Amino acid sequence: MTTSPPASGRLADAYDLVIFDLDGVIYLSDKAVAGAVDAVKRLHGEGRSIAYATNNASRRAAEVADLLVGLGVPAVADEVLTSAAAAARRLADRLEPGARVLVVGADALRAEVTERGLTPVSSADDQPVAVVQGYGREVGWVSLAEAALAVRAGALWVATNTDRTLPSPRGPLPGNGSLVAVLRTALDREPDEVIGKPEAVLFEEAVKRDAATRPVVVGDRLDTDIEGAVRAGLDSLLVLTGVSQPRDLVAAAPHQRPTYVARDLSGLFKDVETLAIGAEGTGWRVADGRLEGKGDPIAALRTITAAAWAGTDVSELKAAGDDARAALDELKL
């Protein structure tokens, strides 16, 4: 599916499904991101179709929905797609009913495996035919060692996702990708399959579930949410409330470039023409190695990003005046 940016109107009006990432977009750990609750409630109040696609495999869909409701966000389990559920479905499609699967991760992943008619185990001695690895706060050396032994013995190795970090109020923390890297190092090989973003599986499921014809992805990570949207051929909005920051956006490779960028979810209710990378009339311009103009620093970021993506060297961009200097300082560019 390929879409193209509409010419005008609110971003939310231009799409028939908004697919949200969760960590770093709606909440950080278990605390709501500023303005996120009001933004999602506003979409619900307008009757917009919403889906949540999360790589975090430590909660089941119903648990995620309960967490959102507890934060004040109206949500139901059917709106939530998790990498844990998707991984269990994929394994059930590939394996015989009752097949033994060594689970590395949280209880939520084990429950998903069980619900799909497979048998979760925790030791390589149980001769599992597959290993599924997802994020879990209690994952440690013992479970990783058992997984390594099982994979060496021939078990299929499926990772729910490879996010190197998880956003938190205290800063980025090790994510499932960091734990996958332990096994990658020990085994000197890659997982047989990765289910979560940037793979397109979760987005494809969301689009199919809602029969959407014009979806947009909202995320905070270039390497998962935005790259996944690019792979799926979907428009995307990067919000700067989580992992990826202005410097990352400016340096983004083509396969990780969003359609739009906004400070936070309030961008859903702003004009599309002002949110697009390279939008005209931002009040800013890059010329002769200098940033000139005044106005919203995020608008300056869009202008700087467009220049960088067009091949202009902005690595040593200078400020032409106090407004430009304040914008560059805020953006840490």
Results as ranks from 00 to 15, higher is better:
264 D>V: 04
247 R>Q: 10
155 A>H: 06
265 L>H: 04
134 G>Y: 09
253 A>G: 06
95 L>S: 11
179 L>N: 02
133 Q>M: 12
45 G>C: 04
148 A>W: 05
46 E>F: 03
211 A>P: 08
297 P>V: 03
61 A>S: 13
70 G>D: 04
109 L>A: 09
174 P>I: 00
187 L>I: 10
159 A>S: 15
121 V>N: 05
188 D>A: 15
237 L>I: 00
117 G>H: 03
210 D>L: 13
271 D>T: 15
294 K>C: 08
137 R>T: 15
203 F>K: 01
316 E>H: 13
106 A>M: 06
182 V>C: 10
177 G>P: 06
80 V>H: 01
289 G>V: 13
66 D>R: 14
257 R>A: 08
101 V>Q: 08
83 S>T: 06
145 A>K: 01
331 L>C: 09
251 A>V: 05
208 K>G: 00
52 Y>W: 12
49 S>H: 11
75 A>T: 11
114 T>K: 05
173 L>E: 15
38 D>Y: 04
83 S>I: 01
162 T>V: 14
254 P>L: 10
283 G>Q: 11
80 V>W: 01
75 A>W: 04
138 E>I: 12
195 I>F: 08
182 V>S: 02
39 A>P: 01
200 A>Y: 03
69 V>K: 15
265 L>M: 07
279 A>P: 04
205 E>M: 13
83 S>A: 14
332 K>L: 05
52 Y>C: 06
282 T>Y: 07
239 V>P: 02
68 L>W: 01
312 T>D: 13
105 G>E: 08
197 K>G: 04
166 L>T: 05
286 V>G: 08
288 D>T: 13
310 A>Q: 13
116 R>W: 11
206 A>E: 07
243 V>D: 01
135 Y>D: 02
52 Y>I: 14
60 R>E: 12
263 R>I: 00
303 T>Q: 04
250 V>H: 04
166 L>R: 12
58 S>K: 10
180 V>W: 06
215 P>N: 02
226 I>S: 09
68 L>R: 05
229 A>V: 00
121 V>I: 12
232 A>R: 07
108 A>I: 14
181 A>Q: 09
201 V>G: 03
293 G>Y: 12
30 D>C: 03
168 S>T: 14
